[in-house]
Nucleic acid binder design. Sequence first.
DNA 1: GTTTGTGAAATGATTCACAGCG
DNA 2: CGCTGTGAATCATTTCACAAAC
Lengths: 251, 251
Amino acid sequence: MATGRTHRPATRSRGIPEATVARLPLYLRALTALSERSVPTVSSEELAAAAGVNSAKLRKDFSYLGSYGTRGVGYDVEYLVYQISRELGLTQDWPVVIVGIGNLGAALANYGGFASRGFRVAALIDADPAMSGKPVAGIPVQHTDDLESIIAENGVSIGVIATPAGAAQQVCDRLVAAGVTSILNFAPTVLSVPDGVDVRKVDLSIELQILAFHEQRKAGEEAAGEPGAVLQARKESGKGPDGDVPAVMPA
Amino acid sequence: MATGRTHRPATRSRGIPEATVARLPLYLRALTALSERSVPTVSSEELAAAAGVNSAKLRKDFSYLGSYGTRGVGYDVEYLVYQISRELGLTQDWPVVIVGIGNLGAALANYGGFASRGFRVAALIDADPAMSGKPVAGIPVQHTDDLESIIAENGVSIGVIATPAGAAQQVCDRLVAAGVTSILNFAPTVLSVPDGVDVRKVDLSIELQILAFHEQRKAGEEAAGEPGAVLQARKESGKGPDGDVPAVMPA
DNA sequence: GTTTGTGAAATGATTCACAGCG
DNA sequence: CGCTGTGAATCATTTCACAAAC
């Protein structure tokens, strides 16, 4: 270990903080909704409320992209939609494969939001021969044997793993070997990947466990806690919900 | 806004950092695997590798829980499993309701990892009368009309929302009014909740968009980038994958 | 008057590096 | 010795607060 020391003065073209990147999709969603209602401009305050963050954070986030607002007025909705889309790379569309067409994989394939912005389900892959050819969400399932050629033929660089935990690492290795460089992992396992491959994970039981932790604390405080008041009022946060941070990782 | 100022000297019993809380489930999973293989002890180095973090971080994380290791030896696997489970509130079991039994809701209901540790699907709720009574994952779906009584009768404090975006806020409001104080939201919307309620969100399209951002950067660097070398080697990180941070928020 | 854009301060998280314990 | 536990240093993110732009 300790390969890359504190070095790396390079590769810093226009470093947008990871935390900011993770919020851009949120802004984009709020802006898209405004756009559909033909709202021409928004203030940082309004948009922040719609996205569930605070306005100072939003302005700072946008400042990394450039100066796209007008003082005294706000931001042009359409223009911002375009700028953020471009920044996120959504002006092109990304072919995606889903591997593991069980309950979850099928649900993902059917998920509308997939196609909505910049993503296209290029193929569904499953190891069960009985599934082969069966259409799910209108797309015929293909067999794992053909994984490499499917990736190659469709120019896929993003893969979604929805297999059981036991198969995930193996599938991941094959995806990476075939040229996939971004993986969204729904299997409850830690994937190891070579440098240059990004992995993000979505894990139901982890989320529930984090909620349970807080839930337990609430129960504890209710009983013990400060003698006097308190009952709600946890942490600050001006109003709406807030925060959120990424989980990427260059591996 | 600006209600809770910088005040709040109280309520700080034993503040475990949020980032640490988010990693405890990861450690727990790795430890459980070791436990099943009857491994008696692990070093921070080994466990860190299994959990995909670095060992300094892991030791620091554990230091917030107490001194559960033995210098020169490592950590007792069983003991740590117990301590972390207790810390996360998994020694009791949490009844959970899932609202919205479409493709995704059904997939969640069928998800094994649910029951595995501390969670129990107490009820499935859907607005479609045609679904009522139909069993999913062996549990009969109940109608939204009965939401309040279902929550009350089962003492549910954790709710999972898997409805379409349009229905999510309304469902959320009813859950909260009925006594739910932790929500896991799969609908692509920002939920607003009163103080004291935690919301975590899982959003497929946000994750994909973040991946697309990085994917685009890779493509860009390949073409432009530094004149000389570079091709892989992004960011540092000693070896394995790393990082990850939470998204809770007391609201 | 309003609202952006941003330095500077404050807070939080990670990493270093090593003393101290078994 | 080996490995934990932890202060101190570094790095990242958020928040403040206000000058500049409209």
